[in-house]
């Protein structure tokens, strides 16, 4: 069965809240019912079929076509099924997600994987600020699952991240791993300023020493062979990412910080 497909009719001026269009929420809904779903855009709400051409298909495999960076909350709270998006997506891609598969052929705006608990998000492009972050006032960002970004990440990737994995094939912006509580961020490219700022625990694994080096709020713990990295790389193997092809390494230079706080975070740089 082909995918249930939402093709955006025209680029709207206001953002569109797409949270109602997930496999969970559309399961067992008729096409007519789906067409009637109200989507908030600006200070109005509009019927789904006013904004999208809806093509019947498997509600457990949803496609968005002609999407752009104003489509927010795609994959909101989903626990199963998959959504794939042609184009860019807006903010909060995969917010609260617990399971299933989300992917976008394009860029995502801020808060990709915000407070996600499980499942997998793949951004085949660049992701905006606050990947896996926590909304203001909340203390825990993502607590499980995997976010893969094939391009570059914005600032504050993994801010308040508590568990799970963020794999960035390109470069990261500033403050990668800021206020990280735990979990793993792996980066193949370069990192911006203030790497690991206010990090409590967790691991930032780097394929190369960042151009800017490591800041003074991290102390060098020397070079080591860390056995657990073998397990980590094994776990990458089954993921659809260039990380599955990265040569395993377990020799790293280890930096511990941010010393301002409990200083239990680590930046591991391949040597």
């Amino acid at each position: 069965m082909s995918s249930l497909t939402f093709t955006l009719k025209e680029v709207t001026r206001q953002r569109i809240d797409c949270s109602p269009l997930t496999p969970n929420k559309l399961a067992d809904k008729s096409l007519a019912d789906i067409a009637k779903i109200q989507l908030v855009t600006g200070n109005l709400s509009e019927r789904a079929d006013a904004l999208f051409i809806i093509t019947e298909g498997d509600s457990q495999s949803i496609k968005f076509k002609g999407s752009n960076s104003k489509l927010d909350f795609i994959g909101h709270n989903m626990t199963k099924g998959k959504i794939s998006v042609d184009g860019d997506v807006g903010a909060y891609f995969g917010i609260f997600m617990e399971g299933g598969l989300l992917s976008v052929k394009g860029n995502s705006f801020i808060y990709t994987g915000c407070e996600m608990k499980g499942g997998q998000i793949k951004v085949n492009g660049d992701a905006g600020d606050f990947i896996g972050g926590a909304r203001p006032g909340r203390r825990n960002g993502m607590t499980g699952g995997t976010v893969i970004v094939t391009g570059n990440a914005g600032a504050r990737a993994g801010d308040h991240m508590r568990r799970g994995m963020i794999l960035i094939e390109g470069n990261t912006g500033d403050y990668c791993g800021s206020r990280m509580i735990s979990g793993t961020i792996a980066v193949q490219g370069d990192c911006g300023r203030h790497l690991g700022y206010a990090m409590k625990r967790g691991t930032i694994l780097l394929n190369q020493m960042p151009t800017r080096g490591i800041t003074a709020n991290f102390n060098d713990c020397g070079t080591h062979t860390l056995g657990y990295l073998a397990l980590l790389f094994t776990s990458f193997k089954k993921l659809d990412t260039t990380f599955s092809r990265v040569d395993n390494f377990s020799r790293v230079r280890r930096y511990a910080g941010d010393l301002a706080g409990i200083g239990m975070g680590e930046i591991l740089v391949k040597i």
Binding site: G144, R163, G164, S182, G183, T184, R201, T203, Y228, L231, L232, S235, M264, E266
Partner: peptide
């Protein structure tokens, strides 16, 4: 002694 690190893999 507090320096242990937890990792969840797969």
């Amino acid at each position: 002694d507090g320096f242990q690190i937890s990792k969840v893999i797969d």
